[in-house]
Design a protein around this nucleic acid. Structure first.
Lengths: 251, 251
DNA sequence: CCCGCCCTGTCATCAAGATGTCAAACAGGT
DNA sequence: ACCTGTTTGACATCTTGATGACAGGGCGGG
């Protein structure tokens, strides 16, 4: 039987594959911390939990995990401080780090990312969303360490420095546009519905009109195309938006 | 727990053309069950309620819902068991599942539970919070269902990227033609009557002339055959249309 | 502490596309 | 050739996306 039409599936959850990675969750809110632990363990990870910044310090000097999930708001040593110290220390410098931030902490997030977070999730978030990011980060990080820079064609998005460059020139945009671009570039080619974008960029339970996404996409486009440059964002009528995966080939 | 019945913003509730999703609530505590049903119905969902684990089994073998909300503490068959069986059965394997767990249950048993739940909420929870998760989960692309690539011969349909390529070249078509092709390619060779296509591509409640299908088939054909390429769609006089299962062998 | 700039979310409006219907031309089978 | 069911182009209408304007809120600078 020759080639049939076949469907290529991603398996539901792929708990296997890499040997169980160890994840450190630094989160003071007990319910959230447990929620994360259960789900991470359900996916086969080993989880360490600490509630305070100073505990985290100690734990990190004992065991080096494969990935860290860090809440920005922490009693004791702040998340920002943890992040900074992690990056300062040789042994933890390259650890994949996901920050949990509440909406409205944009400026804080900037500082956090500037200090080296690899990814961030807006609270409240959906568990599947976070899990996806954990897997993505673990998959990605290993080889040449996560540079923290997404690029395609003449476009570069630097998460560490919260900067976007087009053809060398720096491009200015608001936090929302930045996160939007970040998200789209994270999965080039993939079409996201407006609702999905609201979930992951604005945060689950953000009660915002879907049309608002259009406006921000528009602002993003305007920011990205100062001249007569090609638009890297593809509109899919009736479906949503996507970062054009053929973008770097063309430009 | 907070049992005040609250309304939840419906802004981006169910703007989808697809008929309202059906949700199965498995919860023995009547008050909570009703609270959920009330709020879910207020958002336009169809709600099935059962109180016991064994009832759930039966219900699931009769009607497959689009999402399941399952309480951990159940009389009869436990929530864990329900969950496990759902995942074991082919028809329910990919069903989005939200677990309700109480704070005190966050022990060993619950961990196993997480093995298959897509998301869960710790009681007491706020209704809007749960609603947000329900929506988020329904929106979430189910790996294996709405994603993947269908291909046949020189034709590729990429659901994630929402793209169709013929002999490498991108082919443009409207959303309806896309869905139509998607549906036909899903069951190569199978003949669908116009009525069936209207149901699955346009939606159950579509009061549309059957002849309209012809027109869209025509548009689809035109889009797919820029040159003198073979037509992948077979017309079955008096019956309907089908994707030609011999297509890839010939082309 | 106050002022002003920047970011945001929402609207109203405009433009581009997509859709459903019809009718006339066509094709297949008898 | 005839009848029935199918293809196609035209077309009016409906949707959906793009855009500019605008008011409220927040943050930082003075």
């Amino acid at each position: 039987m020759a080639k049939d039409i076949q469907e290529v599936n991603e398996s539901r959850a792929n708990p296997t594959r890499a040997a169980a990675a160890r994840i450190l969750v630094i989160e003071d809110e007990a319910a959230l911390s447990m929620l994360l632990a259960y789900n991470l363990e359900a996916e086969g990870f080993t989880v360490d939990r600490v509630e305070r910044g100073d505990e985290a310090e100690i734990r990190l000097s004992e065991t080096i995990p494969d990935l860290v999930i860090l809440d920005w708001m922490l009693p004791g040593v702040s998340g920002l401080e943890i992040c900074r110290r992690m990056r300062a220390r040789e042994t933890t410098r390259n650890l994949p780090l996901i920050m949990l931030t509440a909406r409205g902490e944009e400026s804080e997030r900037v500082r956090g990312l500037a200090l080296g977070a690899d990814d961030y999730v807006v609270k409240p978030f959906s568990v599947p969303e976070l899990m996806a990011r954990v897997h993505a980060l673990l998959r990605r990080a290993r080889p040449g360490r996560s540079s923290g820079v997404l690029s395609a064609g003449d476009l570069d998005l630097d998460r560490q420095n919260w900067r976007v460059r087009r053809a060398g020139r720096e491009v200015h945009m608001g936090p929302t546009e930045f996160r939007l671009l970040d998200h789209l570039m994270g999965k080039p080619g993939r079409v996201f519905s407006r609702a999905q974008l609201l979930d992951s960029v604005w945060g689950i339970s953000a009660e915002i009109d879907e049309r608002t996404v259009d406006v921000h996409i528009g602002r993003l486009r305007k920011a990205l195309s100062k001249g007569a440059e090609k638009d890297p964002i593809r509109t899919v009528r009736g479906a949503g938006y996507a970062f054009d995966e053929t973008f770097d080939l063309i430009s």
